[in-house]
Amino acid sequence: MPGARPYDGPMPAHVPSHYEVLGVPVTASEGEIRRAYRRAARAHHPDHGGDVVEFRRVTLAFEVLSDPRARAAYDRSYFTSSPQREGGRPAEGAAAASSAEGRPGAAGFTARPAPRAGGQRNPAGEPAVYVPPFEPGTVPLLPAAVAARAEHGVPRRRGLFGAEARIQREERTAALIRRRILGTIPSARLLNGLRSPRDASHVAHAVLAGYRLALVDSMLVPRGNYAWDGAHLIHGSRTVAPPRLAEQVRDFQDVFGELNVQGYILVQTPDENPHEPVIDVRRGAGALVEPLNASKFVRELTFFLSSGPQPNVVLVPALARLLTGLH
């Protein structure tokens, strides 16, 4: 990848996906999958001295990826349905993945924070490093050109009622992330319109940078001062419930155990003033996801993404899995 520098940190240890077993990218066609299966089956067939366990992996991978419905379900589940097996046991989402920040209960490795010269330099602003690197002779889960793209998907939510307002709100949110986040963190990748792992409901936006994933939704309210009580925004006698993002954060955290997942709700006003609305948080109003105006949203999202371990990394397997979940 042009401009990418070698990565010398620890590599994730994980049970391979069906795509990795066959040695094809997630963008592979039916013909490419069929040809890859024939090559892998010949290499691992027990009659030719191959390993029985590896041959079973190859067979399972082909059974899933050669069936359009099974492949679609596998992709929508972010590779957690019909898993490969390690030691005779099914891989289970987060348990099969590695932990990037050493959270208790997650298997795998702990990523080393990138060094900072003199304790000052923030590596989030450095050129993106791809993990694993794109090397000749290897077949990555994503083509290099796709991994290098900063934005994927369309900021649009399907629906009949209020669709125009939702589309406008999501376009504004994507534009803000594009302008204020992608421009300052080269490794950041914006994905618009993901399916939730639980029920295929819509997740408006996600931003991946390093080993951190931010889920983002938005809401539009009139100008003014609001109070946040932990469940509602209160403006005079009016109360507004924000989007239900906390459950989706938990679902993505369960599936992507190698990432630290957090949620953000951007509160917009019609005039697009980044400091509006003013939101006062009531004492004791704790919540997993707190509504933020544009100014605070940009500040907190930037800090979350740039303060993680190796924030200049593009984790290709995680990005590939997320891309298969786009609407």
Rank of each mutant, 00 (worst) to 15 (best):
P274Q: 06
A163F: 09
A147M: 07
V249P: 10
R178H: 12
E290M: 14
L266Q: 11
A4D: 14
N225W: 08
S307G: 04
V24E: 03
E272L: 15
R85G: 05
A150K: 06
L194P: 00
S306M: 01
A72E: 14
I234R: 15
P143H: 07
P68G: 05
R85A: 12
P6F: 08
W228A: 04
Y78P: 03
P6C: 08
L322K: 01
Y264E: 10
P115R: 07
P155R: 01
Q262E: 15
S82M: 09
R180W: 07
H48G: 00
V154R: 06
P10R: 12
A231F: 12
R116F: 04
G125H: 08
V314A: 02
G210A: 09
R157K: 15
A214L: 02
H14P: 00
R56C: 09
V52Q: 13
A13S: 13
L245S: 03
V129R: 08
K296E: 14
A100N: 04
V314K: 00
L190M: 07
I33L: 14
F297R: 03
H202S: 10
L213G: 03
I234H: 09
R112S: 14
E135S: 14
G286H: 13
L182E: 02
R166W: 02
R198Q: 14
A163Y: 07
E30P: 05
E135T: 15
E170A: 06
A61N: 01
G257T: 03
G49Y: 00
G286M: 10
V289D: 11
R238I: 12
T269D: 05
L190A: 03
S82G: 06
A95M: 12
R166Y: 02
S237K: 11
P2W: 03
D271K: 10
